[in-house]
Amino acid sequence: MVLVGVFIFSGWLTMVFAVKGAESTIFDLRAVPIIFGTLIFRDPRLVLIISLGIALSRYTITGFTNPAITGSINILLLGCLAALLIKLYNRKSWTYKRKAILSPICPMN
């Protein structure tokens, strides 16, 4: 569980040092902990907890604004996609290299 907290903290940290745009828009790398989570964790619930934690921590940066709500929904959807990837990885006997190639490609589509 400590590692889950580290992943949430790293997602929050990317938002703190992100490029700020107009109207509370943030350009950051908070999806990176979720991408790495798909490669590290075998339980999809842990990635869902990470995405929920990052989504909730978004409100500590700019408050409850429309871009914050949209960003939270996006990161939650990405977390659901990552959980589905983990379920797929658990069913297939793929190598780590193949998983590492597939994980960053799927969330970017």
Rank of each mutant, 00 (worst) to 15 (best):
W94L: 15
S57L: 11
L76A: 03
G11H: 04
W94V: 15
W94Q: 07
V4K: 08
L46I: 15
I26Y: 03
S10P: 10
A68H: 02
N66W: 15
P104N: 09
C80K: 07
N66V: 14
I35A: 01
R45D: 03
R42N: 15
K20G: 00
T25N: 13
L29E: 06
W12D: 10
V4W: 00
P33C: 00
L39F: 10
A31M: 05
L56P: 01
K97P: 00
A55C: 00
T60W: 03
A82Y: 07
G11W: 09
A100F: 12
G5Y: 01
L102N: 05
M15N: 09
L77I: 13
I86S: 06
V6Y: 09
I61G: 01
L56A: 12
C80H: 10
G53T: 04
D28R: 03
I101E: 10
T95C: 04
I54F: 10
L13Q: 02
P67Y: 06
I54L: 05
Y59E: 04
P107N: 06
T65Y: 02
N74C: 05
T60P: 00
D43L: 10
K87Q: 12
F9A: 11
K99A: 14
R45T: 12
K20E: 08
G5D: 09
F27H: 13
I69C: 04
L81S: 13
S10V: 12
L77P: 12
A55D: 07
S93H: 13
L48Q: 07
L78W: 08
A55H: 00
G21R: 05
L81W: 10
A83Q: 08
D28L: 01
L13S: 08
Y59D: 00
L39A: 09
L102V: 14
V6M: 14
L84Y: 06
T14V: 07
M15T: 05
L39E: 07
E23H: 14
